[in-house]
């Protein structure tokens, strides 16, 4: 109960109240190219934050700084700070535990070439769950949460590569949920899917935000408008505008945001 309250109002440390994620003055370089310029952003718990902008604007790059997936890009350098519940993820935090807390779903569904069951069990096994019964429970609950249990319960031992694109993507969401994260990052999760699968994933995101903080990068402005609580608009590495989704879409403060939203470029 107390935990729930904390989730509602954010994490407190001393007398300060922190949002789930607080990004402060974040710069990022790929070699000499500056891909993010002084980005400040707060992402609240139990909300969906959407990141929009034209291709190459830095929104995916920004998303990947939150779970440090950019670390594996050669020549990528980050300065500034990203606070998760008040703790700097670029400080002393174990990067593997960070990624356990901050799950990620990729643009193209990327199930491992193994069975449905093994895909889901991979994360828990990585983090030390060995007992078969416990794994069984996790697999079932994760698939249920991802609203795909009914479709897959009879083919847990079948290869995950045999599923349709939409099923694969929901499997990947279930896989991310299986390690019990706080936050779910989604990098254009529906761009490779058909409209029906897209609808299912959007519905799922709405459902999941009750328990998780969700940050979603999307190419599709209607999608951002439909499902998100906050929206951030990126352009050439800068966060041009960030605020409640209705406001950003209905009465953008910046001319560039308006141009993008009304489809004048992008």
């Amino acid at each position: 109960m107390i935990n729930n309250d904390l989730k509602q109002i954010g994490y407190t440390r001393g007398d300060k109240v922190f949002p789930k994620f607080r990004v402060k003055d974040l710069d990022l370089f790929y070699g000499n190219f500056q891909a993010l310029k002084s980005v400040d952003m707060d992402m609240e718990a139990n909300e969906i934050t959407a990141l929009i902008g034209p291709s190459g604007c830095g929104k995916s790059t920004f998303l990947k700084t939150l779970n440090r997936m950019n670390d594996i890009v050669p020549g990528c350098r980050v300065s500034g700070s990203v606070l998760l519940d008040g703790t700097d993820v670029y400080g002393g935090m174990d990067v593997n535990l960070l990624r356990k807390r901050v799950g990620m779903v990729f643009q193209k569904p990327n199930p491992f070439p193994s069975s449905v069951y093994d895909n889901i069990a991979y994360g828990p096994k990585t983090h030390g769950v060995r007992k078969k019964s416990e794994l069984d429970d996790i697999v079932e609950s994760s698939l249920r949460q991802a609203a795909i249990w009914d479709e897959l319960k009879d083919r847990l031992k079948k290869s995950a590569l045999g599923l349709s694109g939409g099923q694969q993507q929901r499997l990947c969401i279930a896989r991310a949920l299986a390690v019990r994260p706080d936050v779910l990052l989604m990098d254009e999760p529906t761009s490779a899917l058909d409209p029906i699968s897209t609808g299912k994933i959007e519905e799922l995101a709405q459902e999941l935000k009750k328990e998780y903080t969700i940050v979603i990068v999307t190419h599709n402005m209607q999608q951002a408008a439909r499902i998100s609580d906050k929206t951030g608009f990126f352009l050439l590495g800068e966060l041009i505008e960030f605020g409640a989704t209705d406001e950003v879409f209905d009465s953008p403060r910046d001319k560039r945001t308006e141009d993008y939203i009304t489809g004048r470029f992008g």
């Binding site: 593997n96 990624r99 990327n110 070439p113 991979y122 983090h127």
Partner: peptide, 15 residues
């Protein structure tokens, strides 16, 4: 192999 397997594993907190 496509890089996605590696990324997927890392994103789940694998070393």
């Amino acid at each position: 192999l496509p890089g996605t397997y590696y990324e997927g594993a890392l994103a789940l907190g694998a070393t």
